[in-house]
Structures are given as structure tokens and as C-alpha cells.
Design a binder for these strands. Structure first.
Lengths: 188, 188
DNA sequence: GCCATTAGATACGCACACGTTTCTTATTTG
DNA sequence: CAAATAAGAAACGTGTGCGTATCTAATGGC
């Protein structure tokens, strides 16, 4: 295969950086390992990003932009929730988990928190959560009086909490347990 | 001041390790810096703990043991929960919240997770949670069939999650909301 | 098809921090 | 007071990984 340049090369490098990050973690990611995985060499990386941190930041940003999770529409609240949570778990789980690690130093320096960053990132965007809940109310699956903001975000909160605590993919049974024994009993 | 030995010396070292950890994070904590801060030198540390990881583990365990929260006994499930969660929030909130951030590098190095470290720290100890739930069952406040392990730990999970996301003390109203609108409806 | 550009290989200097070794000196024990 | 024990200082070896420098060869623009 030929020698890649510009955009294609850059994409391959950031892809490799993300893979290293999610498989081996930030501490075990080396600039060399990223270069090797991308089938190139270190100087190519340093021509684009001034240091390891910026490289990883770029990889994280790219991934986040690419992997937005669209809320599922299966026809039932339970189906929507399980499908969406499962997709989040698969696509974004490792992302969120690693992110909190990466940003550790950043939070300490800026006195900000994960919640604030998330708020800024999600600003203006109508959350998939509201969409799912809205449809469920129309179908009469939810008693709107019971759907406080905290309860509406509960399944997502619990998935994130589980992912962050274990730093591993959450088992499908756990997702079902959250939906069936905690969330659904609270809203109908 | 004289030369410290045994217990006193060990305590001073672990105190210093904790301070370094909370001020500078795991990645910036060095065995040298801990030794210097404790007013001693590296070999003294290596005579006690085989490596940096075990040293930090010991410091975390010690801190955790010191700040144990005894489960409250107020006569009602709601009272017990709110009192205990409030005390946890005040005593341990900052501790837990910062911990995951600070230990980022540690988790990456050891391929372990927050959950695993927590398991190690709590090993063998009967949790206050079980005590509170046990009393509530005797009083007939809880339907035991509904008390799955996940639901039993739910209020504590939510408090921790809230603390970790915001990195700030959790408001008393949030604690009440968790207990009154989420936990209690699920168990009776 | 020629030339500027840039990918890719290799090797190097450097800083840092772990964990060890050696030795001196203070403290405890009996 | 003597002997055993452990603290504390200093220096070292070692591995690792960052960031750079040097060179070659492939690619795209013109």
C-alpha cells in the first residue's frame, strides 16, 4: 500500500491513538506505540501535535464528534431504553471512563468538574433522554407526575456510574436490571 | 526532633503519602517526594512496602479506615438513611470524589478499577448498609423480596455518583430526594 | 518528468523516577 | 553499658519514554 498523506494519514493516527487509549489506558499509551499502530513513525506525529497530551486530546475530541449516540425508537419505553443504554455502553462506555481519567489533572487545575464540562459539551443539544421520555408519555407508559428530572436521568446515571466504577463494559443483564427493577417501577 | 520508629514513623509516612496524593495526584507523586515530606528517606519506605503501588494502597486504606462512617440508628429507615448519607457526604464526600481523579494513573498502571480498590479496602468488613437494611426489615419498613443488592446499594451509589460528578458537597435536598423519591418507593 | 514537500526509518540525548546498595548513626533492649 | 536493630543519607544502576535530529525515498503539483 502506498504512502498516506494529509487528512487520511492524520485520521489513521488519531484512530490508532484512540485504540491504544481504550485498550491500554493513558499511562500505557506511548507515542511510539501509536506511531507503530498507525504504521508510521514518531516524527510524523510530532510534526502535527506538539506533545503527547495534545495528541491524545485530539484523538478524544475526534472520537466524541464521530460517535454520537442517537436515541433508539423501538416502539416501547423499555425497548428504547435498553437499546440506547446498550449502544451507549458499547460505543461511549470506554470513552467516558477514559475521559475522566484523562481529565483528572485538568479538573484539579481549573477547579471545574466533570458535570460542568459535560454541561458545556451538551449545551443547546436536546438530549436523547427527553425524546425517549416524551414518546413514552404520549404512549401512556409513563405517569408524567412521577418523572422528575432526577428519575428521568436515573438509568443513564446508573450506567455511567457502573462504567466509571468498573472501567469495563457493563453486562447486558445489568442494563436490564437497571431498567426493569429500578427505572420502570418508579415511573408507572 | 528525635528519630522516629515503628508505628509513629509508619503513620507519618502514610500521612505524607496521602497528602502528596491529594495535592498532586498519583502521577506526580514520587517515592522520593513522600520520603522527603515525611522527613525520612526512600529505603525506610522500601523496607515497609515493596513498591510505590502498595505504598499508595496502604495510604488510601489508612485514610479510609480513619474516616469510617458508623451507620446511624434513629429508629426509622428514612432517618437512618438520611443521617448516614449526610454524614458520608460531609466526612467522606471530598475524599471519594477526589480519589478517583487522583488515582487515574494508578488504575491504568495496575489495570484495576475503582470498584476493585474499593473491594480491597472494604474486605471483610460488614457494611453499615446491611445493618440499616436489616433493622428496617425487622421493623417491617422494607419488603425483603424487593431488596435486591443493587437496590440496597442504590442510595449510596447515587450519593457517590453525585459527589463524583460535581466534585462538591451534595446538598441536603438532594439526599432527601434520593431517599424519598427513589429509594423508599422501590422497597415498600 | 522535475522539484518542493513530507512520509517514514533510525538513532540519539536527556530527564526522571523506580528500586537497590552501602554505610553511618541514633535508639531501644536486656 | 553493650549489642542488636533500624533510621537516615547518599549514590548508583536501570529502564523507559519523551522529544529531536538526520537522512532516504516516495508523492503530488506544476
Amino acid at each position: 500500500m502506498g504512502r498516506r498523506r494529509g487528512e487520511a494519514l492524520e485520521a489513521a493516527i488519531l484512530e490508532a491513538a484512540w485504540d491504544e487509549l481504550s485498550e491500554r489506558g493513558y499511562a500505557n499509551l506511548t507515542v511510539d506505540s501509536v506511531a507503530r499502530r498507525a504504521g508510521t513513525s514518531k516524527p510524523v506525529l510530532y510534526r502535527r501535535w506538539p506533545d503527547k497530551q495534545r495528541l491524545v486530546e485530539a484523538a478524544v475530541v475526534r472520537r466524541n464528534v464521530i460517535q454520537l449516540v442517537a436515541p433508539a425508537d423501538t416502539g416501547s419505553l423499555r425497548g428504547d431504553l435498553i437499546a440506547t443504554l446498550t449502544e451507549m455502553n458499547e460505543k461511549r462506555g470506554p470513552f467516558l471512563a477514559q475521559l475522566s481519567m484523562l481529565l483528572a489533572g485538568y479538573f484539579a487545575e481549573t477547579e471545574s468538574s466533570f458535570a460542568e464540562l459535560r454541561e458545556a459539551v451538551l449545551a443547546g443539544r436536546r438530549s436523547g433522554r427527553d425524546e425517549i421520555m416524551g414518546r413514552a408519555i404520549e404512549r401512556g407508559e409513563i405517569d408524567p407526575a412521577k418523572l422528575t428530572p432526577r428519575i428521568a436521568s436515573l438509568p443513564f446515571e446508573l450506567l455511567r456510574s457502573e462504567a466509571m466504577m468498573t472501567l469495563r463494559p457493563v453486562a447486558p443483564e445489568v442494563i436490564e436490571e437497571i431498567v426493569d427493577t429500578i427505572f420502570l417501577p418508579l415511573v408507572r
